[in-house]
Simulated scan of single mutants.
Amino acid sequence: MLRLLLTIGLILLTAGCYNTNEMQGHTNRQDIMDMGVQKEPSPTTDNPRSIERVGDTWGLKQDRDQIRNAAHTVPGVHVQRIIMENNHAWVTVSTDKKLADDEKEQWTKDMAKTIRDAVPGYDVTVKTEG
């Protein structure tokens, strides 16, 4: 009997020490009052990749232009096609002069590195025609 009373007393003691105000999911009166209050966002942002500036400072068009500009830094190169999907870019270029197979392979690697340096967020594959 004594054991039962001690167990019940221990349960009541620990239940009384429980702080329900700190529990997850708890909402107090101030939280409810703040739900309808609209906080004014700052009209200007310093983030150049903000959603309002798509097309001005970042996006697929800008990435495609950077890839084209990087490829054109190599003399005698003409960009035929740029295909972008997720984080991969396939670039097809042509050259003014004919290249031997081993020369073409090294030239393609160098071109891919040049483009990758300009647009580091993409895995670049270069195909050379000519």
Score class of each variant (00 low, 15 high):
residue 113 K to E: 13
residue 115 I to K: 01
residue 24 Q to V: 13
residue 106 Q to I: 13
residue 130 G to M: 00
residue 85 E to N: 11
residue 103 E to M: 09
residue 115 I to D: 01
residue 113 K to C: 00
residue 70 A to K: 03
residue 61 K to F: 03
residue 22 E to K: 13
residue 101 D to K: 07
residue 96 D to A: 06
residue 21 N to Y: 05
residue 26 H to I: 01
residue 14 T to W: 06
residue 106 Q to G: 05
residue 108 T to N: 08
residue 128 T to C: 14
residue 8 I to L: 15
residue 108 T to K: 14
residue 51 I to M: 07
residue 59 G to N: 06
residue 108 T to F: 01
residue 29 R to S: 09
residue 42 S to K: 12
residue 86 N to L: 02
residue 103 E to W: 04
residue 25 G to K: 01
residue 91 V to F: 05
residue 121 G to A: 09
residue 41 P to H: 04
residue 34 D to V: 06
residue 73 T to D: 14
residue 11 I to Y: 00
residue 75 P to A: 15
residue 37 V to T: 15
residue 68 R to M: 13
residue 52 E to F: 07
residue 95 T to A: 02
residue 16 G to N: 12
residue 87 N to H: 12
residue 65 D to E: 14
residue 19 N to A: 05
residue 18 Y to S: 13
residue 3 R to P: 01
residue 25 G to M: 03
residue 105 E to P: 00
residue 94 S to N: 09
residue 46 D to G: 11
residue 46 D to R: 14
residue 13 L to N: 05
residue 38 Q to D: 10
residue 49 R to C: 04
residue 105 E to C: 00
residue 72 H to G: 03
residue 31 D to T: 08
residue 23 M to N: 05
residue 96 D to Q: 10
residue 1 M to S: 12
residue 45 T to I: 03
residue 70 A to T: 02
residue 40 E to V: 05
residue 125 T to H: 02
residue 54 V to R: 04
residue 52 E to K: 12
residue 81 R to D: 15
residue 62 Q to I: 15
residue 5 L to C: 07
residue 56 D to T: 06
residue 67 I to C: 04
residue 43 P to H: 02
residue 93 V to P: 02
residue 130 G to Q: 03
residue 73 T to N: 13
residue 39 K to W: 08
residue 83 I to V: 14
residue 121 G to W: 02
residue 100 A to N: 12
residue 71 A to I: 04
residue 3 R to V: 14
residue 57 T to F: 15
residue 120 P to N: 06
residue 106 Q to T: 15
residue 91 V to E: 05
residue 109 K to F: 01
residue 117 D to G: 11
residue 88 H to K: 15
residue 90 W to L: 14
residue 96 D to H: 08
residue 48 P to L: 11
residue 77 V to K: 03
residue 76 G to C: 00
residue 43 P to I: 09
residue 6 L to W: 08
residue 103 E to H: 07
residue 113 K to F: 00
residue 93 V to A: 03
residue 6 L to T: 10
residue 90 W to F: 09
residue 4 L to E: 07
residue 127 K to M: 11
residue 117 D to N: 15
